[in-house]
Every structure is written in structure tokens, then in C-alpha cells.
Amino acid sequence: MSQVYKAVYFSHSSLWEAKKGGRPSYAWSSLNKLAGFWKRIQRGFSKVVDSQTLAQFCTLCYIFWEARNALIFHRAAPRLELLLAREASLLVPPATRPPMTSTWSPPGTDIIKMNFDASWRNNAASGYACVGRNTEGEIMAAATAPLMADFSPLLAEASAFKWSIGLAMDLGFWRVCMETDCLSLYQAWHKKEVGCSYLFLILTDCRLLAPGFAYFDVSFVKRSGNKVADYLGRHSEAFGQTVWIEEVPHKG
């Protein structure tokens, strides 16, 4: 039910910034009265704590109330990691949808753009590919690697992301922009949610590696702007684990 409320009433804001809206349900009208309560608390405690701390406190109270109801009515024992993930989803606004860029664009000065992709063949992941280009569009390096694990499409893209970060480090590219054509991966990265799934574990590893760069960013481009990495990924089984410096293999 909480997901329905978020989708209908505050899909682009937090719970505490939600408006009552037109023709709200009785349940939502009651919940929305928390906004007035929130404002009174904020006025009273504004000189004691900052608004962010207060928002976190009120959100935790709401989450504990949800957990209490789940325990009493559904016999569902609360789990700390799920409570923290719930807090993050309420406090952090959804990631901004990226511009739908259809063509490859050059990175900034002294930055290497690493376009990566995970390829699928016969409904199974087959390999990774990555292409690094400078601000002039010149290819600085390219690489492929076969993928032996049985991953879902999103996990394969996340694994390719982590592999490409390691590749950039090995090549000595310390100012990079990692670019993907997987919108779900891009949004998962920028939401910075907490979780225990394999996807979140992979992204956590990537977040630990990112501070090792002098510059690190993640961007999105449509598949039409990621053609080179897509081609290399589809032929990664034939190329094997290979790295090309300042070139890519020609179509044969």
C-alpha cells in the first residue's frame, strides 16, 4: 500500500513534502494531516535541530509504526536492512531521469569516457565489452571478456560496470566517465539505495572503487550511442579476454 501512495501522491518528492491532491482517499487524507504536524514540530524545534535531522527522526517514527503494524497484523518480524532501505526510499527523491541521448558525445577535457556493455546470446549472458575514448573521440583502449556466470540482464550489466572500473584502473585512466545504455543500472547507481540483493552488493563494490579516481561520473546513452561496445560484446566469445590499445578489432 505504501508503494501505491508513493506512486499516486508523492512520486517525485518525499512523504513529508506530499500534497493532499484532488479527491484523495480517506486513508491518504488522514496520513496527509501529518504534514501539518510536521510543520508544527519544525517550527518548535528549528532552533534545536536542523530540518534534515528532524525529517530523518519523523521518517524513522513512521517506519517503526509500519514495522509495528506488520508485526502485529501479519506476524512479520522487522529486519534492520529492510527498515534502512525503507528510510532511504522515503527520504531520497527518485533519481532524475537522464536525457535520452541517442549518439555518443565526447567527455570533458582530460576525461576518458568508458562505454561498456554486457552481451546476451540465446537468452544467456555471453560477455563484457568496454571502449575508452578521449575528448577528441580517439580510441584509447578497448577490451572484451567472456562471461561464464548465469546472470540476469541487469546483473550482467552491473558486473560489466564493475569489470570496466577495474579495467580503467589497470590502464591508468584516473579521470573517467562510465557510460551505459542500461537505464535501470543508471537509475540504481544514482538512487544510492541500501539493500542486500546481489545488484546492491555489486554497486557497493563499485562505490568503494570510485573514490580512487581523480574524477568519476556515470552517464546514460541509448543503445544507438553505444554501438562499438555492443558490437564487441556480441563477439566477446570469439575475441576472448583481450585488450586493445588505441585500436579496436575490425569487422570480419
Rank of each mutant, 00 (worst) to 15 (best):
L201T: 13
A214Q: 15
Q52A: 09
R79P: 02
K6A: 13
W28Y: 04
E157A: 08
S13L: 02
P78K: 02
S119D: 04
S2Y: 10
P98R: 07
L91V: 12
S25R: 00
A7T: 09
C61I: 12
T135I: 10
Y215K: 08
E246W: 00
S51C: 07
D117W: 01
P24C: 00
W65R: 12
E66K: 14
R68I: 07
M114L: 15
D181I: 02
P93Y: 10
I63K: 09
W120M: 12
L15C: 04
F45W: 09
P99R: 15
A168E: 02
T103R: 15
H235D: 03
C182I: 06
K192A: 15
Y198W: 07
S25W: 03
W244F: 02
S236W: 07
F216T: 00
L54A: 11
Y5S: 04
G252Y: 11
V4W: 11
G22V: 03
T135S: 13
C177W: 03
Q52N: 08
D117H: 01
D170V: 05
A229Q: 03
L34I: 00
K162E: 10
D150L: 11
W174S: 13
G240A: 08
S14L: 01
A158S: 12
R223N: 09
A145Y: 05
F45Q: 02
A142E: 06
P249I: 09
S219G: 07
A76K: 14
E66A: 05
P249D: 08
I41N: 03
T135E: 13
L84Q: 13
A158M: 07
G233L: 07
L90S: 02
T101G: 01
E246D: 10
A149W: 05
P99I: 12
Y198P: 03
C58L: 14
R175D: 09
S224D: 14
E179H: 03
L155E: 15
M169T: 09
N123M: 08
H12T: 11
A124M: 11
G127P: 02
E193Q: 08
F216M: 07
V243S: 07
V218A: 03
K222C: 11
V248F: 09
H74S: 15
L80H: 09
A35D: 04
L167T: 05
I245P: 05
C182H: 04
A125M: 02
L60P: 00
W163Q: 06
T135W: 10
N123A: 13
K191A: 14
G44H: 10
R223Q: 13
M140L: 15
V48N: 05
A77I: 04
T103M: 11
L171I: 13
K20M: 06
V221T: 11
V131K: 02
G21R: 02
L54M: 14
N115S: 13
S13I: 01
V4T: 12
G252S: 12
C58H: 01
